[in-house]
Design a binder for these strands. Structure first.
Lengths: 225, 225
DNA sequence: ACAAAAACGAGAGCACTGCTCTTGCCGGAA
DNA sequence: TTCCGGCAAGAGCAGTGCTCTCGTTTTTGT
């Protein structure tokens, strides 16, 4: 995507990249609510109006940063979960999400915290946002055999939703396993959110032990070998 | 706290209440990032500078709204979980959190989403913020007998954190049960966050079935009768 | 009961924001 | 060579959080 044909296209891609980089730097130290187009422009020695040639609005800049964050997190998790026994991959993937979140708290808050603008979720973010859950699903799908713990049977509507979802991403996955993965993914997200946003203060903070134990119980629930 | 001694104290409390009410109205329809002190002042027919007699900054107004939101949610959950068999109370409490979150999405995002300001968590919010987790703990503590599912043993540091926490809130609770409640609370938070912030779109949305099933498995994990 | 002190609402003003519009400039295509 | 489109710059608009000052009103201490 950076391969522009003409020289002008190439410098445009380059400047776009620099803008995002500067914005990411400001985001990392001040948070999304304090990300100002004018400040970013000043950091780059431009005037603020020039920025609008590259991003039609502040929200569009944020959307670009959101996609980049999803992709950075997704790549990190995919790499962490690339090989090994299923349970090892599971731990590695979960630990990678947490590690990235702790290293980039403001970017994590941008994508997984409360939606910043009047909230819209542009369709363009979906592929990037799906990378982490798809990785988790792949770990379970690739497991040779699962020995999950007993659980309540799925009511018909839940089974239908699970079937619709598996049809899209992992056709051979049993419905109840799909539901368990979704629940585990929400659990992981909840745990990291609690830690990152300070809801574990004075109780289970630092959260390393609680995190490791919970991830292990998730693997048990899924029946990963 | 509204019982001021002098007439001035009483009108001050009344105006403070009106300001919070107007701010909450704006919050409910526009979100925290669009909450403007000047707009609130206009709604009340005041000039913006007059508002600073009641709240020293915008963040202080938000903090007041956060405490109110914690208390509203806490009261709702406490009432929902007031009586019945432990498992019934558990379902009622979880459903109450979700219902309140769906009815007041922006307020929920304010307290449980990414921290809006440069993030500080004033000590004054702690008692209000603790009401929901304390209610969940009380349900488990009040259960006559628990038959939890097998789980990995607690590593020493996790057991120590759990012991420290139980000593504060439920001295007679076994450590591993405390850890399970904490994990369940994070799970609940994660599930609601996913639903509210649109991360279940096109998969498990509407989330009623996934929510009910997951809450049931949490009750199983805790061994609630 | 009266004066000092504190609290209050209104207004002007500062520095900042997102965003628009206009004005020139300069490089690549016809 | 002459256009024309993308570009940076600047001015400007409406809005923001917040501070300060200035009269007025209410409470408090003597």
């Amino acid at each position: 995507m950076t391969a522009g044909r003409t020289a002008r296209d190439r410098v445009r891609a380059e400047i776009t990249r620099e803008i995002k980089e500067a914005a990411r730097a400001r985001l990392a130290e001040s948070g999304a609510h304090a990300l100002s187009l004018r400040a970013v422009a000043r950091d780059l020695g431009m005037v603020s109006s020039a920025l609008y040639r590259y991003f039609p609005s502040r929200d569009d800049l944020l959307t670009a940063l959101i996609i980049d964050a999803y992709d950075a997190l997704g790549a990190r998790v995919e790499q962490a979960a690339a090989s090994g026994a299923p349970r090892v991959r599971w731990h590695a993937a979960c630990a990678a999400v947490r590690a990235w979140a702790r290293e980039h708290p403001h970017e994590y808050a941008l994508v997984y915290g409360s939606p910043v603008p009047g909230y819209e979720a542009p369709q363009t973010t979906i592929p990037s946002a799906s990378r982490v859950p798809l990785t988790l699903i792949a770990i379970v799908r690739d497991a040779p055999e699962l020995t999950p713990t007993p659980a309540p049977p799925l009511p018909p509507d839940l089974a239908a939703q699970a079937a619709r979802t598996t049809a899209l991403v992992a056709p051979d996955l049993p419905d109840d396993v799909m539901v368990r993965v979704a629940a585990a993914w929400a659990h992981l997200y909840g745990l990291i959110g609690f830690e990152l946003f300070g809801h574990l203060a004075n109780t289970f903070d630092p959260a390393d032990a609680l995190f490791a134990w919970t991830v292990e119980t998730m693997a048990d629930t899924l029946g990963l070998p």
